[in-house]
């Protein structure tokens, strides 16, 4: 981890930093500003959507700028694709300076896999393992591919967070209040 302190960029600068490198492969970049408190202090979030082909390079490029804090990877089932969103925060350590950086990438269900980022950010392991079992996204090169939350006898091809009809999951659903003895 070479954390050579680069000059801190603001939200616009950060978007430019990525756009200069990847040009049109960045499909969407939105800077969202909200205020809080009676002094109307601003806080900034960046929402980006990138093409899958540059995913790993993008993560590397981000780590080159600054070692980010990865909060979590969340995922949406968009029908044909699964959208993974990597929630980072950068520029922490100084008051009012932190930016939430959310990078989304689409993974098609037909080839549901993505490279691991554990080699760049070891702390991603837990959340990547969770994505494997909950959304069925295969993480290529993950150092540890065991299950995380689901029990060992849970059916293999059932992914609780997917939205399509899954008979395997429906069989498991229990309504606890029905079991109450009257």
């Amino acid at each position: 981890m070479t954390n050579t302190k680069k000059e801190q960029l603001d939200a616009k600068g950060l978007v430019k930093y990525f756009k200069d490198e990847f040009k049109t492969k960045i499909l969407k970049a939105e800077i969202r500003t909200r205020t809080a408190g009676s002094k109307k202090n601003e806080f900034v979030e960046i929402w980006m959507k990138i093409d899958k082909s540059i995913f790993k390079k993008m993560m590397k490029h981000l780590c080159d700028y600054q070692f980010p804090h990865l909060a979590v990877v969340s995922g949406n089932d968009l029908g044909k694709n699964i959208e993974l969103i990597y929630h980072f925060s950068v520029n922490f350590g100084e008051r009012f300076k932190e930016i939430s950086l959310n990078i989304a990438v689409d993974v098609p269900k037909t080839k549901c896999e993505i490279e691991t980022i554990c080699d760049l950010i070891p702390g991603a392991l837990i959340t990547e393992r969770e994505k494997q079992e909950m959304l069925g996204v295969k993480i290529i090169g993950i150092p540890d591919d065991r299950r995380l939350f689901l029990p060992k006898d849970f059916p293999e091809d059932v992914y609780p967070w997917r939205k399509d009809k899954q008979p395997g999951l429906e069989k498991l659903i229990r309504n606890l209040h029905e079991g109450v003895k009257k």
Binding site: L150, P151, P160, L169, L172, I173, R174, N175, L176, H177, G179, V180, K181
Partner: peptide, 16 residues
Amino acid sequence: TGDVFYESYNLVGPVN
């Protein structure tokens, strides 16, 4: 009774 967790795929309760 299950309470807020009344519906789930990973629960076998209530304890009864």
